[in-house]
């Protein structure tokens, strides 16, 4: 019988917590950015597009270091957050969520944007002629139609968050019970002699969690597609 050790439970719990919040908090921004990129044309759009996609091509360590500089206790934004709201991101699980969110953001935006571009604008026009305002049209027509893509974006973001290592360890370090997620715990184990078996167990857990996420997304996407096809 495969029972989890307290260390494994803690790492798994942290990983899920961090990934959940990374995706949940960035999803509205992801939809917003996707909408801006898909629907608006403005000078400097290529630059905005580039900035959003930057974490995809940068070494995660660079992103983590950047976050430390900006959001750390003495960073420009970090100091402000701490002094005014009492929020500390550096070396906390919330910081880990932020790091994961930044790294996963481009993947999420890409998937959602693709789905949005696939929505027939004629349907939105039809909704408008039926007396539906633009905001309501987005909620009742556009969003339901792009739901499969949003779902894909969420799962991609979640999976990427689960596997986040470089930015996280740079920004929030390796603190047991606070920022030691599965990949970080695994890395720590590989650095000590005799940690092989424990490391292997964490590997298996990671694979199982990632695989479950993929299966769940496939299942949900099929259900949504089936709904559209009637």
């Amino acid at each position: 019988m495969f029972t989890l050790t307290p260390l494994e439970i803690e790492a798994l719990r942290l990983s899920l917590l961090v990934s959940f919040w990374a995706v949940a908090a960035s999803l509205p921004f992801g939809v917003g950015c996707a909408w801006v990129l898909a629907r608006l044309d403005f000078p400097g759009k290529a630059v905005v597009d580039g900035i959003i996609h930057l974490p995809l091509v940068l070494p995660p360590v660079v992103v983590g270091y950047g976050l430390l500089v900006v959001l750390g206790r003495r960073g420009v934004v970090g100091a402000w957050l701490h002094d005014w709201f009492g929020i500390t991101l550096a070396f906390t699980w919330k910081g880990a969520a932020v790091a994961s969110a930044v790294i996963a953001f481009p993947l999420m935006v890409r998937a959602i944007r693709l789905a949005l571009e696939g929505v027939d604008r004629g349907l939105e026009q039809a909704a408008r002629t039926l007396g539906c305002g633009p905001v309501r049209t987005f909620w009742s027509v556009t969003l339901p139609l792009m739901l499969p893509g949003v779902l894909t974006g969420v799962i991609l973001g979640f999976a990427r968050s689960l596997s986040e290592f470089g930015a996280t360890i740079t920004f929030v370090s390796n603190i047991p019970g606070e920022t030691r997620t599965l990949p970080i715990a695994l890395y720590a184990l590989t650095q000590v002699p005799g940690g092989d078996e424990a490391a292997f167990r964490l590997c298996v857990i990671s694979v199982v969690v990632a695989f479950a996420a993929l299966l769940a997304s496939e299942f949900l996407a099929r259900r949504v597609q089936a709904r559209l096809k009637g």
């Binding site: 408008r128 002629t129 039926l130 633009p134 709904r227």
Partner: peptide, 22 residues
């Protein structure tokens, strides 16, 4: 006036029914 404020019905060449609704 915005399209939604005009109170006109529009039947398009392609039906443009909402696929996610019955």
């Amino acid at each position: 006036l915005a399209p939604e404020a005009r109170r006109l019905g529009y039947v398009f060449q392609e039906h443009r029914l909402f696929p996610h609704l019955s």
